[in-house]
Design a protein around this nucleic acid. Sequence first.
DNA 1: CTGTTAGCGCGTTCAC
DNA 2: GTGAACGCGCTAACAG
Lengths: 345, 345
Amino acid sequence: MARKPKSRSQGTSADGTSSVTLIDVARMAGVAPMTVSRALNRPELVREETQKKVLAAVRATGYVPNMLAGGLASSRSRLVAVLLPTIASSIFAETVQALMDGLSVANYQTLIGLTGYSASREEALVEALLGRRPDAIVLAGTDHTSTTVDRLTRAGIPVVEIWDLTEKPIDMAIGFSHEQVGRDVARHLVKKGYRRFGVISVNDPRGLRRCESFKAELARQGIGDCPFETLPAPATLEGGRRGLWRMLEYTRPDIIVCSSDTLAEGVLMEAASRGMHVPDDLAVMGFGDLTMAAQLHPALSTVKVGGADIGKRTAAALLERFQMAAARGPVCIDTGFSIIDRESA
Amino acid sequence: MARKPKSRSQGTSADGTSSVTLIDVARMAGVAPMTVSRALNRPELVREETQKKVLAAVRATGYVPNMLAGGLASSRSRLVAVLLPTIASSIFAETVQALMDGLSVANYQTLIGLTGYSASREEALVEALLGRRPDAIVLAGTDHTSTTVDRLTRAGIPVVEIWDLTEKPIDMAIGFSHEQVGRDVARHLVKKGYRRFGVISVNDPRGLRRCESFKAELARQGIGDCPFETLPAPATLEGGRRGLWRMLEYTRPDIIVCSSDTLAEGVLMEAASRGMHVPDDLAVMGFGDLTMAAQLHPALSTVKVGGADIGKRTAAALLERFQMAAARGPVCIDTGFSIIDRESA
DNA sequence: CTGTTAGCGCGTTCAC
DNA sequence: GTGAACGCGCTAACAG
């Protein structure tokens, strides 16, 4: 009754490639392959004694489950695809880190794609990542090409749009309203008595929306004039310096509102090098997470948004979905933001 | 001769899940499945006319190749696993970004694992990532558990250890010598005339090695006394401030050497808030990439290491390996570093 | 609780 | 140039 051995190279082959399979483990443990699978994935369905034999065989062989095969068979890849503009901006980095941490405790892994703020790159990446059959997909923003939206919808998996909010999310949205940030900041600063404003923003869609909303609210409050400097993304300290430099050539604002903390830090540096005192000669307001910048410049006001919080809540929302395996209706989570004002402290 | 239709849910099912397969495309195009596969992966083997029919069918069906299946069949996953301590440190972020960029042009995707500087987490992650059968694995540093080294070796794929150099890499090493950084900085500063040093470092293995090497070289030059402050990782501005604060309680160095630019920026801030002038009252030396910090503080000297360069060269080295499919002997690439001195500028 | 059967969707290998 | 079988390594579904 000897079974004919497989023809291809098995076991530890000459090139050092060990392709130990479930079958090898099963043979060594003296059980059926299916039992090994169960012992590894659903130990509660297996007798303790069997379990031990299997684990011993796993260790002895150095078996590492092939998740390509497992994913194919079960149509659950335990992979989450994440699409972000960039990772070299600390604010997104915090989100990814938190998201990965949250997912990894449930044995999900993360496939990252970098779009560089380009919708066409996003479109290509969505297709490429979908090829891995992820169990969910997370992407920054709510502004996608129609092809992207179409593919996302048809993928039939949870889709989370983060870092923004929208009336009609593809599936879920977790973030905050950039319009509201702009409006609230404007109201706050006007109430504090500021009248001469300047805005410095990088050319990033959400940053621009915050700034536009800010200007619109100012206009509503009767302040029509608001100098605006735009710089190419990504935000850098140098950009902040240059922005202030250019602005001071034609106006003298009391306060500069920046689209990000990095820019704000650059502004602070330029102000310092001109001997301007912050916030008396010039106040500065940033935007971002407190982790790096703002907690330290005693004079820098800022809008705090929880980059890590977004990641954490995204992970939680996904794990919940995975558990009940039922696609409920649209979900929106407003992670909010808060205005940190250094002068009132 | 009607073929019995498959039993499982196919086509666009009720739940919105479209599982279009190669077979569906083939049927629509009126060719064999194999021809579709070729048309997509090796178009040069297919007649132009056939090619067109296939592409039309692909578009019409919205087919997205299942790379789990493809990877399983071909044992080439087009996946590269990357293990890093963290991504929320801009220096690693640049490396990842460059690495991903380099790999993505060749249609490789990136699976990231975050170790948080823990060797045991690295060990667990290596096992988990290896389960995806990546075509290569990249990991930070050269200090791994023996289990990790063993698994890596047996995986039979290219392994790149980055951000460090070693006599005997597992496979390839791409980075620079942290000992040499410490030594060169010490020589440089002594030659410039500094005698009273202070070192502030976060508790990160490579950072500590740089600082230890720095102190050792100082000792060799006859400077045995060198105050040393260590802070918990990760590096923050706050850490830099606190480090300087603590140090100034018991000593008055002429120059502070920091394990990273972030720390150095914190030191600069603390110095500024004490009214100390940099570099006259206190010189500061950082370490990292020029992208963010150093290019802007006119008074901050630093060691420039190419974080992005490491990523780029890693991608290049891997793509080369993939092409010749032959595992050659060990490879070491020294990406070097350079000391940027603000005073001599 | 454990084993058996039958694919998952694709690429390799050979015929044609 | 194109097609037909076969199996990659695993798990769902059912039988025992």
